[in-house]
Amino acid sequence: MRSRSSDAGTKRGSISTVAKIGKPGRPLLGAHMSVAGEVGESLNRGKQVGCECIQIFTKSSRQWASKPYTNEEIEKFKRNRIETGITTVIAHDSYLVNLGAPDEAMRLKSVNGVIDELNRCETLGVNILVAHPGAHVGSGIETGIKTIAKSIDEAHAACKGFNVKLALEITAGQGSNLGHTFEQMAQIFDAVVENERLRLCFDTEHAFAAGYDIRTPEGYENTFGELDKFVGLKRLAAFHLNDSIKDFNSHVDRHEHIGKGFIGLDAFRRLLNDERFFGLPMCLETPKGPEMKEDIENLATLRSLFAN
């Protein structure tokens, strides 16, 4: 388990508890849904497989360019949200974005990309945008953290008064990616001027790959105790539920179906029944085909773990 430095921490005092808008006795379960066709179709797909919440991309995750939503698309998304009953929707930013890029042209392109996505979330009424903090690409951890904070500050400055919050996702620590320890996350949060606008997304596979062993009761409690010390449990806005193809502390980002990887079912049972996280969205990011039967199977597996 990772050691904790006594002087590490982040500004937590002004952060209110994330609104628990889900069912009071457990977390909300869902999956990442395609926005193919138009963004409102993601909700219909979520309803089809039994989601209580969904995660979406606000645009193609592999392209910088995007067309603005039409009024019809916006209205359909809002209408489908009501009709499906899936009122909790979170978004994930583009995989192209690197807020820690040492190359200034790439950094500015990434900042503008996040600003665009924050605007798209605000338009749709999506209150959480999940983002990987960024990679230092050889500039070093300290410089990378400063660059990420600078980039977030610029995005915040361009989106004054927005309801949507940026939720930084713990990473597996692959390559030069930052944000794979809670200490690093705390350093990023502390370096951001409008610190209160940040939230955290906990990915089970990423945390496991980064060296947080959630498989045992002791490891689970140590992990979330450390998260609370450095970042604060009240910062948690969403979870990604993924098992791991690779073994513990691999620093490799490879998702597996629930219970079929190295994490195993006990960790998910413990997480799903942890009352500290009741009402929060927990979304699958596991592989699936066009018929989404894998989502149905994974959601059924997760629901079987709820305590009676």
Rank of each mutant, 00 (worst) to 15 (best):
N44K: 12
E73I: 09
L166P: 00
T171I: 06
L265D: 11
N298G: 12
A135L: 05
S250N: 04
V231H: 06
P287F: 02
V130Y: 10
S61D: 10
A19Q: 13
S94A: 08
S6Y: 10
G173C: 05
L166Y: 02
K109I: 14
G144P: 07
T88L: 01
G179F: 02
K150T: 10
R120G: 05
I258F: 05
L96F: 11
G134T: 14
L233M: 13
G22W: 03
D153Q: 06
R81M: 15
R2G: 10
D153Y: 06
S151N: 08
T301D: 07
K146E: 01
G225C: 12
I21R: 05
L200M: 04
D190K: 14
N249W: 03
G40H: 10
K165Y: 07
Q55M: 08
T88W: 04
A158H: 09
D7M: 10
G13V: 15
A157H: 08
I115S: 01
W64H: 14
N127V: 11
A101W: 00
L198A: 09
I74D: 13
S151F: 07
N127L: 07
P281D: 00
I82S: 13
H251F: 03
K47G: 10
K20D: 06
L43R: 02
T88E: 12
R26H: 00
T58A: 14
K11W: 03
N195P: 10
S250M: 07
K165T: 13
T123A: 14
V97P: 02
